[in-house]
Design a binder for these strands. Sequence first.
DNA 1: GACGAGTATAGGACAAGTCCCATAAAAATC
DNA 2: GATTTTTATGGGACTTGTCCTATACTCGTC
Lengths: 193, 193
Amino acid sequence: MTLEHAILGFLEREPMTGYDLKTRCFDGAAGHVWTADQAQVYRTLERLSERGLVRSRAVPQRGKPDRRLYRITTKGREALLAWLRRPEAPTAVRDPLLMRVFMAGDLPDTEIAGLLTQARDDYQVRLETLRAEAAAPVPSCAATDARGAELYRMTLGAAMAGTRAVIDWIDDCMERISRGLPPASPQVTGEGV
Amino acid sequence: MTLEHAILGFLEREPMTGYDLKTRCFDGAAGHVWTADQAQVYRTLERLSERGLVRSRAVPQRGKPDRRLYRITTKGREALLAWLRRPEAPTAVRDPLLMRVFMAGDLPDTEIAGLLTQARDDYQVRLETLRAEAAAPVPSCAATDARGAELYRMTLGAAMAGTRAVIDWIDDCMERISRGLPPASPQVTGEGV
DNA sequence: GACGAGTATAGGACAAGTCCCATAAAAATC
DNA sequence: GATTTTTATGGGACTTGTCCTATACTCGTC
C-alpha cells in the first residue's frame, strides 16, 4: 500500500508523468525512503486511475511518445490523508546480510571478515550519498514549502542514522573477529534420509 | 533467494519439518533477521526438494498428520556455501514510517508527533524482546556450537543497534517538533486535469 | 461437553516487487 | 556516420510475501 500513497503524495505536490515519478522521485529525492521499479510505477498509476484517485491527460510531443500527465483528485487527496492518519504496525525485518552472518559458521574467519568489509564499503558509499543529499538544496519533488523541507531533512537524518548504525556494528564485529572467533565443531555429515 | 538459503542453513544444523522451521526458526530464533509466512516455508521446501537440495521422509504419527522431515543434501550444502561466498549488493530501503513522515506535511504537528510516539512505542517493545533474547540461552536451531552462537549474538547486536538508532532518531524528531515545525504554505487545490 | 489452542500439512487468491523486452525518435558522443 | 543516451510508455513472466481456507486429532480450559 505504501507505493500507492507515495505516488499520491508526490502528485499532490505537483502533477507528473510516470517517467518523472520514477526518475525524479523514486530514483532521486525519495530513494533513501522507498524505491520503485519502472514497471511498478506505471502499473500503480493505472490502478490508481481506475479507482479514481488520480486522473491523467495526454500531452502530445514531437518525436517522443505522448507524455501522460497525472494529477491527484479530491478522492485521492482524501485517501492520502486517511493513510497518513491510519496507524500501521512496524515492518518485519528482512536483512540478507544478517542472514548470511547468521549462517556463516561454515566459512573461515577471513571470509566472514571479507563479507563484512564489502558490506561496510557499500554502506559507506550510501552514507556519502546521503551526506551529499543533505548538503544539497531540497529537490522540488521532495517538498514545496519549508514544512515539507523540514520533514524531508528528518527522513534523511533517519537514513543516515540507520546507515551509521550498520557501519558501527560492522566495526564492532571486525574487532571481535580479529580476536578470533571460536572454531567450528566438526559436523557429522551423514547422508541418509 | 535469501529464504531458500536460510532454510538450507537451518536444515544443515538439524533435520526439521516445515512446522519446526516456521515456529522454531522464523518465529523464534531468527525473527530479528528474517521472517517467513507458513505458506512460503512449505512452498519453498517443495521447490528445494524438486531441485534436489533437500530430501524428505514421512514420519507417521498417531492422531496428527504425518510429519514430513526434511534433510539437506550434499548438493544443498554446496548451494548454501556458494551463497555464503557470493557477494550481494545491499538491499534497497523501503520504510513505510519514513514514507509517512516524508508525506506528512498536511498533518498538524500534534498528529505527526502522535505518529512518531506510536512508532517509538513499537520499537521500544522490539528492543525489549531483543534484550530478552540476548539474555536467554542460544536457541538450538540458531547454533550448534560456540562459533554459531557467537555469530547469532552478532546478529542480535545488529538488530538492537538498528532499533536503538530508530528510537534515538524519533527522540530527535520529537524535540524538533516541540520547537514547532514551519507552518504549511497554503496549497492551490485546483481540480482541472 | 463445548470451545479454543496446539500440532501438522497444503491449497488458492492476490499484492508487491524484479527483470527483461519492445517501441520510437531526438540529442549527445565517439 | 555510427553508437549510445535520454525521454516516454507499456507488456509479459516470474519471484516473493500475505492472507485465508480446509483437514484432523489431542489436550486443556471454562
